[in-house]
């Protein structure tokens, strides 16, 4: 086969960022900037959220929106990230993609929980109920369970590789839920109102309330990026530590010790 000769070079270029050493250096270089930008965006966003005018109907309760809406956006964004990373991991066997998918899922679960709790606190004074089983609320609860399932299944197998593959398939199957969440308020009658920001035409939210919301969303996104890098770094360093430990045990001549240490990125 003529393609065989070209294959190794192509693979190397595709996996340039799969090199854990390179990834760690890149993460270390970007993390301080990410944290600073995140702190700045959240600080400005919070000041904006507390100084923004009250709503003509909801009064000061509308301030819950500045946490609830970014949390909801990030809950869906994180799941989309996991789905894309899982697809890359399944098709191209990119080891960092697997790592990213598993590192993102507890973060996404936290965003979803924050969204559900703040939504409930907002629903009681405005709608008159903590919870209803309408399409929007139910599909977000399903998203929360998908995150929990993803976390559980990734660690449910003795063979880590099988666990990763099962989790990736679950993440892809669960991705059907993301468009359902987004369009639930348009497709069906729900108690939840329809989208204010991402709709055709001008956003139905006054500019004095829109900018704090978008700044908070930016802060949440930067937080997600930073925490994801930290979690991936942590996992990589943990793997490296386990390998070193296994190697030193092996050197001391303890039989069987090498079997417990997993070689990092054997698949790549």
């Amino acid at each position: 086969m003529s393609t065989q000769a070209a294959a190794p070079r192509k693979t190397r270029s595709l996996h340039r960022f799969a090199n854990p050493g390179r990834f760690l250096r890149l993460a270390d270089a970007t993390l301080p900037w990410l944290w600073m930008a995140c702190a700045l965006a959240l600080a400005v966003g919070l000041v904006g959220a507390f100084t923004a005018p009250v709503d003509y109907q909801q009064g000061a309760s509308v301030r819950i929106m500045y946490v609830h809406v970014p949390a909801a956006w990030l809950a869906m964004f994180t799941y989309t990230t996991i789905a894309v990373a899982s697809a890359v991991a399944l098709v191209w066997r990119h080891p960092l993609a697997d790592l990213a998918a598993r590192a993102a899922s507890p973060v996404g679960a936290s965003f979803t929980l924050l969204c559900l709790v703040t939504g409930s606190l907002w629903g009681k004074p405005m709608w008159g109920t903590w919870w209803v089983w309408d399409a929007r609320l139910t599909s977000v609860l399903v998203l929360f369970f998908l995150y929990l399932g993803h976390m559980a299944i990734a660690n449910a197998f003795d063979d880590a590789g099988r666990g990763r593959r099962a989790a990736a398939i679950l993440a892809l199957v669960g991705f059907v839920n993301v468009p359902i969440i987004k369009f639930s308020v348009d497709w069906w009658n729900t108690l939840h109102q329809t989208a204010s920001v991402s709709r055709i035409g001008a956003p139905a939210i006054h500019s004095s309330m829109l900018w704090p919301l978008l700044t908070m969303a930016l802060g949440f996104t930067l937080f997600f990026a930073a925490i994801l890098l930290v979690r991936m770094k942590n996992e990589l360093l943990g793997q490296r530590l386990r390998n070193l430990r296994a190697a030193s045990l092996q050197r001391r001549g303890e039989p069987g010790a090498a079997a417990t240490g997993q070689p990092a990125h054997a698949e790549s």
Binding site: D55, T129, Q193, A204
Partner: peptide, 27 residues
């Protein structure tokens, strides 16, 4: 059981007042 459903419009009271006054929107 009666639940209130609010719409997707968010604005300060003064803006709502002005919109009503100008007749562009019946609040």
């Amino acid at each position: 059981e009666v639940l209130a459903k609010h719409d997707e419009n968010y604005m300060p009271p003064e803006v709502a007042q002005a919109l009503k006054k100008s007749g562009r929107w019946e609040g």
